[in-house]
């Protein structure tokens, strides 16, 4: 379980500082990339980003120094454990991520209703470990059909439309 907006890593004896560096390193790479896009532009486009970006780089360097000191003192390790803990859930989580990516990828072709139905069905079955098939089927069906009425019929959103929407277009 995650904490409300913050961390919730089971604390090992040594602080896993490696994981803590993932976001700052990503931030550092992004900031450097950002800087490369504003080298040759009017100063108005540079001023805020250079100001904030320089502070961010400074903060990240400070964190890296802090981590190095902690590792040297033996208070922390460069482990990435919190990122993947608990390990038992890694396959499930990766599978859910894969399903989510496929959902977004296929919605352009399959349309909202059927893609949502399949996503809900597959991901709930994944999380339940294949149990309660009937209930999951019912929930997926109700939500995707309900979603169709709410988003497409009532709110007329410009969702990609697939076979279901096309078929029902004349009806609603």
């Amino acid at each position: 379980m995650s904490d409300e907006n913050g961390p919730d890593t089971g604390k090992p004896a040594k602080k896993a500082a490696g994981a803590e560096l993932v976001l700052p390193v990503a931030g550092l790479i992004f900031t450097i990339y950002y800087f490369t896009t504003i080298i040759d532009v009017p100063w108005t486009a540079q001023v805020s980003a250079f100001f904030v970006g320089t502070i961010l780089i400074g903060l990240i360097i400070a964190l890296i120094i802090r981590t190095v000191i902690q590792v040297r003192r033996g208070e922390a390790s460069l482990s990435l454990a919190p990122l993947i803990a608990p390990r038992d859930y890694v396959p499930k989580r990766l599978a859910l991520l894969g399903l989510t990516l496929s959902y977004v990828f296929f919605i352009e072709w399959g349309g909202f209703t059927i893609t949502t139905f399949l996503f809900l069905l597959c991901s709930m079955l994944l999380l339940s470990g294949g149990k309660k098939k009937g209930l999951i089927l019912t929930i997926s069906l109700i939500l995707s059909v309900g979603g169709y009425f709410l988003f497409i019929v009532v709110f007329n959103t410009r969702f990609p439309k697939g076979p279901v929407e096309t078929m029902l277009h004349g009806v609603f």
């Binding site: 352009e108 349309g111 007329n156 410009r158 990609p160 439309k161 697939g162 076979p163 929407e165 096309t166 277009h169």
Partner: peptide
């Protein structure tokens, strides 16, 4: 509203369908 709904993909599908 129906005149203005945006179902571009639907039409593409229709074309495929035909």
């Amino acid at each position: 509203m129906s005149d203005f709904e945006n179902d571009f993909s639907r039409r593409l599908f229709l074309k495929g369908a035909s």
